[in-house]
Amino acid sequence: MEDKRAAVTALPALFADLVRCETRLYNALNDRLREQHGLTTAQYEILRYLHDHPEARVADLATEFAAGVGAISKGIDRMENLGWVERRPNPTDRRSSLLALSHNGSDLFDAAQKTFTTRLTELLADLPALTTVARTLAHLRTTLEDRRIGLPAG
């Protein structure tokens, strides 16, 4: 019982550590991606998702990133205007579009992926027990997603 009470007491510090680590990693990656490729970490993540999931819809991105459909759609609009993403008619649902990387978007992703991976390796490769941390965070993410926790309301 004492161990459980101590664990519960430690939860706010765990939350703070998770959030602060995510923010610092995100900012460090964002700085490098902006400097070398002129895109943000959020844009890189969308390019990565579209690279890995051809013909995704805005709704698919919203689910993946736990973000509102409107916010994702506006981000896609900006990326389309930059020539990185293309919208194509969805043959099974006229209300939605299928998204794809343009040729420029694909080239940008390939270059940015190298930068992203190099910077992430610089920041995390020497972390003790990296495999255990990765496995634990993957389990936490899966649990939250399976329970549909933290999705935007609209």
Rank of each mutant, 00 (worst) to 15 (best):
A6I: 11
L39M: 02
R148M: 13
T121Q: 13
R147E: 15
A111E: 11
A134P: 10
R148N: 15
M79A: 04
V58P: 03
A16S: 11
A138Y: 04
L50R: 04
T136H: 14
D31V: 01
D52F: 00
A129D: 15
R148W: 13
I149K: 11
R87Y: 05
A10H: 05
R32P: 07
L130Q: 05
H53L: 00
V69C: 01
L130H: 03
V8H: 08
A129T: 11
L47E: 01
S97I: 00
L124H: 06
A16I: 02
L33S: 00
L47M: 05
A62N: 05
S106M: 13
A112F: 09
G75S: 13
V69N: 10
D77G: 06
R95L: 11
A56T: 05
A28W: 01
R48Q: 13
Q36Y: 04
A111R: 14
H37N: 12
L82G: 10
T40I: 02
R94G: 06
D52S: 06
D60E: 04
F65Q: 04
E2D: 10
R78E: 13
F65R: 05
S73C: 02
T23K: 09
H37Y: 02
L47N: 03
A153C: 08
L124I: 13
E86M: 10
L14Y: 08
H51M: 04
V58D: 02
M79S: 08
L33Q: 02
C21G: 03
E80Y: 03
R48V: 05
T115A: 07
R78Q: 10
L124Y: 08
L82A: 15
A42S: 11
Y44D: 01
L120E: 09
I149R: 09
A129N: 15
Y49A: 14
N90K: 07
E86K: 12
T121V: 06
N81L: 09
Q36T: 10
T142F: 10
H51L: 00
L14N: 05
L14V: 12
D77Q: 13
Q36F: 01
T23D: 04
L14A: 11
T117W: 07
A6Q: 11
T136R: 15
A138R: 12
Q43P: 06
E145S: 14
D52M: 07
N81A: 12
L14C: 09
D77V: 11
A71Q: 12
D126C: 08
N104G: 07
N27L: 11
T143C: 08
I149G: 07
G38P: 02
P152N: 02
E64I: 00
A42M: 08
D31Y: 03
L123N: 03
L127W: 04
N104W: 07
I46F: 02
L127Q: 07
L123Y: 09
R119V: 14
E35I: 01
A66M: 08
F15L: 11
E22R: 12
A138W: 00
H139L: 15
V19N: 01
S106H: 12
E45T: 07
D17K: 09
E22V: 02
T117G: 12
I76D: 04
T121P: 06
P128Q: 03
V58H: 03
L137S: 07
